[in-house]
């Protein structure tokens, strides 16, 4: 009975989602450094209780650390100049869900969007999306830098969004 209760307690451990402010553009590096530090501690037999780190796709200058307690995270990043501080309060799991729930890239592309072609013979050129084929994972484009109207179909991996039509 007691063991069972203990096991349950363990599974429902305390969890905080801590929002750290970083220097813009250094989000990845801060996340990598925290990852490294946690791994080092784990290797040394210490568990800092940090379970994951999120670098949001759409918010610059912030990362989220999922941890057992706030204090450990604050201690861990102390003195790291790319970290500008902690945003008071903690995030709710619902908010995190929105942040990490993934949408296939193709679903974010729509006719009228401006994209850059990142591979193939038209690499580096800008184009306007005229059609999106979700089944074939193909985008129809109208090249903007061409001297005459030029339409082509490319796999979705070959483009990068530049400007959304909104």
């Amino acid at each position: 009975m007691v063991a069972e209760r203990e096991a349950k307690k363990k599974r429902r451990e305390r969890r905080e989602f801590i929002l750290l402010r970083t220097v813009a553009g250094k989000e990845d590096i801060v996340a990598f450094v925290i990852e490294d530090k946690v791994k080092e501690l784990l290797k040394a037999g210490q568990d800092p209780g940090i379970y994951s780190i999120v670098v949001p796709a759409d918010i610059k200058g912030y990362i989220v650390v999922e941890a057992k307690n706030i204090h450990t995270v604050v201690e861990l990043v102390k003195g790291f100049s790319y970290v500008k501080g902690r945003v008071p309060g903690v995030l709710k799991l619902k908010e995190i869900e929105k942040m990490v729930r993934t949408k296939p890239f193709i679903e974010l592309i729509k006719p009228g969007d401006i994209v850059e072609i990142i591979s193939g013979p038209f690499r580096g050129m800008h184009a306007r999306v005229t059609d999106v084929n979700r089944v074939r994972q193909e985008i129809t484009l109208e090249i903007l830098d061409a001297a005459f109207p030029l339409e082509l179909k490319v796999p979705v991996e070959q483009i990068r969004p530049v400007k959304s039509k909104g």
């Binding site: 996340a31 990852e35 994951s52 999120v54 670098v55 990490v100």
Partner: peptide, 11 residues
């Protein structure tokens, strides 16, 4: 793909 954005580091 090289075209990715945002990251979750699972420890």
């Amino acid at each position: 793909t090289d075209n990715w954005k945002g990251m979750v580091i699972v420890i």
